[in-house]
Design a protein around this nucleic acid. Sequence first.
DNA 1: TCTGTTATTGCGC
DNA 2: GCGCAATAACAGA
Length: 160
Amino acid sequence: MDISTGICRFGLWRVRVEWSEEAHLIHRISFVRSGDDSPVPQAVSRYLSGKAESFDPYGSIALSRGYPFYDIYKAVSEIPYGEVRTYSEIAEASGTHHRTVGVAMRRNPTPLIIPCHRVVSKTGLGGYSPDISIKKDLLNLEKKVLRKKSRSANAASDEE
DNA sequence: TCTGTTATTGCGC
DNA sequence: GCGCAATAACAGA
């Protein structure tokens, strides 16, 4: 299969993407400290800049049947943009143990696409790898986009 | 196989 | 608040 690699900026971090153009499938996303910028799928850069709420038409390799933790990744991928769920809720939805959800999130091959940053602890934020600040930034980004959207929606309804 | 690893939770003090 | 035990599922040896 033909795998492409690209890097784009996100705050202090860089996002490294490995994907297959023909299969519309993202194989891996990782966060790195440095690296030269190179092209990534437009869906990714649009999401990171708050211009898109999904990665359409790209999907994640982790959502193929038979992939380890498939049920967990599926449940996580169904969390709506800007919302959060606790580890327990994901565990219940996927019929597994909350401790196992933590393991699955830690091993998530494609963060962002499997929106593991939307899974938080009951008592706080929970964790994130490699750095919790990425999780905060992503949640802030989504909240900001939703606020902007609801503002413009209100403005539109005022005109009616 | 067996051991190590893990981004949690809930209970007791 | 803090410490600790419970506990699922995969990776690596």
